[in-house]
Write a protein that binds this DNA or RNA. Sequence first.
RNA 1: GCUGGGAUGGCGGAAUUGGCAGACGCAAUGGCCUUAGGAGCCAUUAAGCAUAGCUUGUGGGAGUUCGAAUCUCCCUCCCAGCACCA
Length: 911
Amino acid sequence: MKSYDPGNIELKWQKLWEKERIFEAKDNSEKPKLYILDMFPYPSGAGLHVGHPRGYIGTDVIAHYMRMRGYNVLHPMGWDAFGLPAENYAIKTGIHPEITTKQNIKRFKEQMKRIGLSYDWSREISTADPEYYKWTQWIFLKLFERGLAYRANLPINWCPSCKTGLANEEVIDGKCERCQAAVVKKKIEQWVLRITDYAEKLLQGLDKLDWPEQIKEMQRNWIGRSEGAIIKFQIINSKAKINYKSQIENSKEFIKSFTTRPETIFGATFLVLAPEHEFVASLFKNPKSKIQNIEEVKEYLKKAKKKTERKRIAGIKDKTGVEIEGIKAINPANQKKIPIYIADYVLLSYGYGAIMGVPAHDKRDYEFAKKYNIEIIEVIRPSKFQIQNSKKNNGAYEGEGILMKSGNFDGIKSEKAKKEITRWLAEKNLAKEAVNYKLRDWIFSRQRYWGEPIPLVFCGNCEKTVKNYKLQITNPKQIQNSKFKIQNLEFHLGELLNPGWVALPEKELPLELPRVEKYQPTGTGESPLSAVKDWKETKCPKCNGKAIRETNTMPQWAGSCWYFIAYCVSSNPKSKIQNHSPSTDELGPVLLKKGGGSKLLKYWLPVDFYVGGAEHAVLHLLYARFWIKALYDSKIINFKEPFSKLKTIGLILAPDGQKMSKSRGNVINPDEIIEKYGADTFRIYEMFMGPFDQPIAWDSQGILGAQRFLQKIWRLFEKSAILNLKFQTNQKSKIQNQKIKKLIHKTIKKVTQDIEAQKFNTAIAAIMELVNEMEKEKELSVVDCELLVRLLAPFAPHISEELHQLLGKSQIINSKFQTNPKSQIPNPKQIKSIFKESWPEYDQELIEDEKVVLVAQVNGRVRDQIETSAGISENEAQKIVLKSPKIQKWLNKKEIKKTIFVKDKVINFVV
RNA sequence: GCUGGGAUGGCGGAAUUGGCAGACGCAAUGGCCUUAGGAGCCAUUAAGCAUAGCUUGUGGGAGUUCGAAUCUCCCUCCCAGCACCA
């Protein structure tokens, strides 16, 4: 037997696995299925660093383990290939992103293969492949068709460095998620997806998911559901000569505001509007404006507009505003006239962009009222029980309590008053119970080149047709769920809601990205595609008139919203996703069949276990859930949640404790590590270094421990007497190794449980303990050795297969294993457990010890440890333990007041 | 400010229906082997002391219990996310 040479061994097995296509999932199988998935990477130019594979190795361990348990495992990999770095590189060098992306993919794939990851490469996909993105486009059209995509001219988050609009989810701390440039507001025509329609479903669905609480909570916060009421405030001209009672009767101007605390309405002493509020704009349109301080107001609006989002946030401590003099609002509860302010601490994007100011019970309103000398009326006082814990938040009491100065509602508890006051105002049609969400619709257009083209055209003719027709619609329900014939042309809901925008027919998909000369974004809000005249100018597929293509592209998140579905399409090259066309029959033959998905989708989906970084909590993970829910409602698929179980991976930091990055120069390259130590050592170290979901720094010494461990196992086989006997088992060694046998079975139990709980670090620690014990033995049986390599196989598959072969056995993955040689003849019980093929099962009898160490305590302190037979009674234990001189010494002839006995564990005398 | 998660030797970490704190690994120290060691082997390795033993010890303080890293209350600090969301 040669010394351990990981390089050769690993390449040998990797070649064999590839040749035998041993890790490919079977589409037609009687076995139970397991779909275990990694978040697919963006193939960057830098290649993988040692942090990336941590998750991949984790899922690989589970994939191996579950295959050994007899599951039909789907474990695929692909590429999230659209994205800015490739495009920016193209701007610099002129090399088409497609070329660099392909090179990067090749590199990534080689690196992954060298780690020995057991992916089913027959199902590999890339989101930038036209044969893939035709389906992304197709799904977009399904959303468009159902009215879930709409055109809007919105002030959006604009990254001046990337020169593109961003979704709210992509703005972190007022900065661009990708390049950290400060985001500004810019008004652009956008495609927006109505994710808010799914706010409630996205929230509700979380409860049933086996996801980390942290991620679920982040999504809950992001969705931001709050219950309250819409309250209407009437607006009157405060300088009008008519008395205001009759004004109240006559004025029809109202401003709506959302509040979570309608019970404080009697304390509402002012109204605040966001600077962008439409009422403010309407004041200027009206030539007979009632505003007396119009110049002052204009000045404030000008200033507010100039402020960036960040400055507005920075102004939290110092709120600014201006009163609109000349008009007043009426508090609907007590008909008091209250002033109206414009202030930028109120956000247009939430609720109605208007709030009622209750300074006594809201910190922010309090600060504002103090600054502008507005009346503060306390209407809730803490009850006797609450008074001790009641804290004023910067002057405002924000807790629950008893109502006062609230008309008929005095003395009522605030929780109860919430509903009653809303109801009372509702009777007068001045309020309504309401639910509000923080979640905003998803801005879906990107003014960049390297993304999926949006498969829509704009047609002037059709715009007229639709606009004329829309005028005839009286009942909005009329336009739901169906197609309409207008002048012999068919339009669907999306086209009616966005006049002039026409969907490409399915047979024209994919709409491929045209070649361009310049990738440079224009910066004007137009994509580089708008410069490609003969691509942009086209014919309307509906009326055959002149039409212009949408030149924006989709955001990077689009392709990742459904990629896990694409993997499920057969691995048979003839039926690969690339070979399916939406046009060949109604909805595409295999991928997406009418009525809830094809057989394959039903078999594989949803994903059973998903592993990736927590940074996608409110991005990819939310978007994908949204698309799946929309596709479910379109009856294209039959599951409501894409990922049943989710586990996040902790980042691997550089040895200096910093994040690994090229610019810091602290990146550790897995290629070098594998070159030096081998893939198995790398895998063992990454799994052993700490808990899977916690961040941890790379330790270049630590990996030596993993290497020593594998070398120790190798030497164990080398020196083992059995090897010299050509792996012949003999009776004698069987008897001698009873101790080891027991330990092995305990280890089987521990490793099995730990893998199931993804506690890979302790699973490996248990195997290490076993190896340390086995090392002490002079002789080991073949069975002992075989069990050891089987436990090791999911973590270090190459060395395990090699050693298994040295034992004279066939491949682990293909060979059944029986721990009990007596049960060679199949019995009914065995047939039942036919799926438990090559993972060893432990024998409970062997795990139970005959001898245990009983801990003897006096007054709860350990004074002695005594070996006894297992299962002895309290009386027996007492007799034995009392003989101990150490215990006698501590008892010191005192009277035993009480004895506590825990079977096989502890006996405690209280004196 | 809000939400979620944490704090255990020199380091990463282990231990949960409350029952031997520090498994496993790294580093360190001493020894063996060696021309050599960034290889291997053996031993030691929480701290303190009056060292065959005893005492203290899981961020700090209180409590429940025969017994607390683990349960309860209060506090401090760290990490992550959100943040004028009415």
